[in-house]
Nucleic acid binder design. Structure first.
Length: 578
DNA sequence: TCAGTTCGCGCG
DNA sequence: AAAGCGCGCGAACTGA
């Protein structure tokens, strides 16, 4: 492996023509840390066929050389990265937006099968796909100090090895039928980099108000609980007066004993177990206590500390291929589990002069289920622009669609979601009552179940096929693959391709948006499974909303040839207004 | 003392 | 035989 160290823009410029002629360029960055808003790029390594690996010393190259680097990365060449989302954020800070790209880590995740190493770090990928070893011990080395020969050599090797990985992985992806989903994921990585880089605004004052109100709600709930636990004792501690209940309500063992002692014969303390006793004042107070303490410990207390000291915004981290089905996960904080309660969502805002543009898919999983199962009645209903929940209600209750009232529709919603994924009658009755406020006896649930499958024969046939020949691996409509364990259940078999295909659609939309919003002042600031949040200047809000809904609908149409995708978009000041 | 597991619950 | 699925996170609990 030949290495060429580059000091200064002139030295780099000499290689520009050859870089511009390359078909594939592997790119790797060494940075002084992990935070693109704080840390600096120390080295840029570029590897291309017929060139020495260029190791660019950024202290002598940046910022003046950034336009040259941008030029080198602006051809149609494939840019190969390991975990592109990381490098892309540092490049964004230099106004460099490379595309198209290939991400070896995402490719590794897509190709994963049981029996392979699960990790998709560079070292593991090199062992798996190239049969070579890669010494990564040097990676802990410090790039804030003077560079050593050894650091340069290893940095060059990291870029070089990406070329080999690309070469090995492209045919593997093709052979496995993963080319289409790989393209989706690679485009999406640019959107994920944007989301993490820009983050989202949190109104800390409103948050603090909510925190105080929730603490009061917790204390009110405690007041109600004292009737059963006894008054707390005033204790004098080192820090002054303290109230102690003498029993820990956060312990399930303790809570269970308290409930049992008061005539509530449950065996677990979860909301579902307590549902039959929901009118009991102890259960009500306990539920309120749980709700408040959950909100405080999961959201209200920890999240303010996550506001970035430099940007003043939250920067949630996304796991692009983290869920089994291909959905994204999110953490630090997990923006995807913020309560729907307006009080919480209203704290997520657009900064002054800007607006949020938010859109979500309407009933995306049901539309996907219609496409995957090819149920003719569902396909027809969606093609005609009908309301599927209403249709199901009318079929279950033998009513005309117009005669379906709100409660009917609510119950049908639970039936649709539950039965498509193989729920049993008992589960359905419980689920309808708890999640949809639609009380249903077991007998009713059983009757609904049989009528449902009479009405939607395509769904019944699809389940029948899955039960008769349980597949060992599943696929989404774009080819995403997942291997099932031994004897997967019907719910697993039916849910995974549907949830996964819905994820494909959202990711496709994000990828298209990354293109269409490139260099604009509209940014992607978040996503929640079937929803995309953008932020843009006030004056551009309407056209951005139109672009967003157009793009999301287009993504759905690419993946679902026989079902229209329906998108609802709004322009608003806070997330609560969606 | 500490890492790993389980329960419970927020979201889609 | 019986069955919605997928996450992340906090607190309690377990085991060494």
């Amino acid at each position: 492996m030949e290495i060429q160290c580059i000091y200064g823009a002139e030295a780099f410029a000499r290689y520009l023509p050859r870089l511009r002629a390359a078909r594939v360029i592997a790119v790797d960055l060494e940075t002084t840390g992990l935070d693109p808003h704080v840390d600096k790029v120390r080295l840029v390594q570029l590897a291309a066929e017929g060139l020495p690996v260029l190791v660019v010393d950024c202290e002598t190259f940046l910022p003046g050389g950034a336009p040259l680097l941008c030029e080198a990365l602006s051809t149609g060449a494939v840019k190969v990265f390991q975990n592109a989302k990381f490098d892309l954020q540092f490049l964004m800070a230099l106004s460099i937006h490379p595309k198209p790209l290939f991400d070896t880590m995402l490719a590794g995740r897509l190709l994963y099968l049981p029996g392979m190493p699960r990790r998709a770090n560079l070292q593991t990928l090199v062992e798996t796909y190239l049969g070579e070893t890669l010494d990564k011990t040097w990676q802990t080395s410090d790039f804030r100090t003077e560079l050593t020969e050894e650091q340069i050599a290893y940095a060059a090797r990291d870029a070089q090895v990406l070329l080999g990985l690309w070469q090995a992985m492209v045919p593997r992806l093709r052979e496995a039928g993963l080319a289409q989903v790989a393209e989706i994921e690679f485009s999406c990585a640019r959107a994920v980099a944007q989301m993490e880089y820009h983050g989202i605004c949190l109104d800390l004052d409103a948050w603090q108000d909510l925190l105080v109100r929730t603490e009061r709600a917790r204390d009110d709930a405690l007041e109600g609980l004292y009737a059963y636990t006894g008054r707390p004792m005033a204790q004098t501690t080192l820090w002054g007066q303290d109230q102690s209940l003498g029993l820990n309500l956060d312990s399930n063992v303790v809570a269970l004993a308290l409930l049992n002692r008061n005539g509530i014969p449950v065996t677990a303390t979860a909301k579902g177990d307590l549902y039959p006793y929901r009118h009991h004042p102890l259960v009500q107070a306990f539920g309120e206590y749980r709700r408040a303490t959950k909100a405080l410990s999961s959201f209200l207390y920890p999240i303010p500390a996550m506001v970035h000291p430099v940007t003043g915004r939250l920067h949630p981290q996304y796991g692009q291929i983290s869920a089994f089905t291909g959905r994204m996960s999110c953490g630090n904080p997990n923006i995807q589990q913020i309560p729907r309660d307006r009080a919480f969502r209203a704290c997520f805002t657009a900064p002054p002069g800007r607006r949020l543009v938010i859109a979500d898919y309407s009933q995306i999983e049901l539309r996907v289920a219609a496409q995957v199962s090819r149920d003719s009645r569902m396909l027809a209903a969606y093609s005609a622009g009908e309301d599927l929940h209403r249709l199901t209600a009318s079929l279950l209750l033998h009513k005309a669609p117009d005669a379906v009232n709100k409660q009917d529709r609510q119950a049908a919603k639970a039936v649709n979601f539950g039965l498509i994924f193989g729920m049993g009658a008992a589960g359905l009755a419980q689920y309808a009552a708890q999640s949809y406020g639609a009380p249903m006896t077991q007998e009713e649930a059983e009757r609904f179940r049989s009528r449902f499958f009479q009405a939607y024969e395509g769904i019944a046939a699809w389940h029948g096929r899955l039960k008769a020949h349980p597949p060992r691996e599943g696929r989404t409509l774009t080819g995403r693959r997942f291997a099932y364990g031994t004897s997967p259940s019907l719910p697993e078999l039916s849910n995974s391709p549907v949830q996964g295909t819905a994820a494909d659609i959202l990711k496709k939309a994000l990828g298209l948006l990354a293109d269409r919003l490139a260099q604009s002042s509209a940014w992607i600031v978040g996503t929640v499974h079937d929803e995309i949040l953008l932020e843009c200047p006030e004056a551009e809000a309407e056209e951005t909303a139109a672009l967003l809904s157009r793009t999301m609908a287009e993504a759905a149409d690419v993946v679902l040839p026989d079902v229209p995708g329906e998108v609802e978009a709004v322009v608003c000041g806070t997330w609560a207004d969606k």
